[in-house]
Amino acid sequence: MIDLMLAWLTDPANWTGSDGVPVRTLEHVVYSLVTLAVACAIAVPAGLWIGHTGRGTFIVAGIANGLRALPTLGLLVLFVLIIAPLIGNDLAFVIPSLVALVVLGVPPVLSGTYAGIQNVDPAARDAAYGVGMSGRQVLWRVELPCALPLMFSGLRSATLQIIATATIAAYVSLGGLGRYIIDGQATHDFPQMLAGAVLVAVLALLADLLIAGVQRITVSRGLTGRYRRTAADPPSAGPVAGGAGSEGDRVLDPV
């Protein structure tokens, strides 16, 4: 079985044309990127606003819990039935799928952003106002940078959710790598299905790794505990002056 899948994957015929692997992958990536961008454009400002002002927190709680229970397949199918008749051209099946992807991408980003802002150390926030930052400065210079780890974890959940649902959306005629699974199912071409499954899994992994990499660069080491040590700053370097040495010098191990 796996041999057949490998044969399918290495067959040059499957790497060309409008249903070749490069085109299908590109479709999947474009759908995912576009919907993720729209979801973020909605969820990030909303999450920042709710977290910073503390207003409308019930929206976050409701959306986060409610949408997790919604079956994605049911949502997709429902959207197609509602939206497709309104469009009537080639995009009749694409638009509803994309709308569904956006809807599923919003909650993780929203609750991640909101929770990130909420979890900022109250003492740090208090100090930020206390040193004379304006509300805007507190948000941009203290709350947002401190919220990044949770925002990124929301972004990663949203990305995985979108890539997974885009696969399922092949059932309602969306392009992308899910086509191999759905079309293979129709023609009982199991090697093709398996190949599609593997390609989707790899895409999801790569996307997750990519965001993890961006996260590693963007998030302050002060928050992640990944500290850099230099020759001038050996682990044993303790404070020297002022009797501070007796306080003990806590140096965390890099994770």
Binding site: I163, I168, G178, I181, A197, V198, A201
Partner: peptide
Amino acid sequence: LYTIPSLALFVALPG
């Protein structure tokens, strides 16, 4: 494991 889309896992498991 959690990153693998469900449909992909359903299909890949028999293999």
